[in-house]
């Protein structure tokens, strides 16, 4: 009885992970198209630029959230805490939270809110793609 479940799990788990990865890839591909449209010299997203975005103190947004790290901590694999409401935030790093960046509407909604709060403006497609690329490698 247990063996069929284990065998099924062996097949289903990688499939679920792959499905999440492909959903994330599709979102990244979409941002890549937009980034290319905004700047024809765009070639690829950069994990390094994503990390810089994550750690920079922007000073343009809400004083309670000068950087992404204000809520997500210096280590994106850790749980964070919303600096305004105190609510616990699940890790942003994909390794710690494989569901991250797999629902396009949720991703857009969150960037919309958080970029306004941290940077004081909207993020570009390039910035969003860089950020996801950084988090996917964390």
């Amino acid at each position: 009885m247990i063996r069929p479940i284990l065998v099924a799990a062996l097949f289903i788990l990688p499939v679920a992970a792959l499905a999440a990865d492909s959903a994330r890839d599709a979102i990244l591909a979409d941002y890549a198209t937009q980034a290319k449209k905004a700047d024809v010299s765009f070639t690829a997203f950069s994990s390094q630029r994503g990390e810089a975005l994550f750690r920079t103190k922007w000073a343009g947004g809400d004083p309670r959230t000068p950087s992404c790290t204000a809520c997500h901590t210096d280590n994106p694999r850790n749980s964070g805490q919303n600096a305004k409401t105190g609510r616990t935030i699940d890790p942003v790093a994909v390794s710690a939270n494989p569901k991250r960046f797999t629902n396009r509407d949720d991703v857009e909604k969150q960037f919309g809110r958080d970029c306004k709060s941290v940077l004081g403006r909207e993020c570009s497609a390039l910035e969003k793609g860089d950020y996801i690329t950084f988090m996917a490698g964390q």
């Binding site: 409401t85 105190g86 609510r87």
Partner: peptide, 10 residues
């Protein structure tokens, strides 16, 4: 842990 009065679960 509290941050704000509306953080009931704290």
């Amino acid at each position: 842990k509290v941050v704000t009065k509306s953080n009931c679960p704290a």
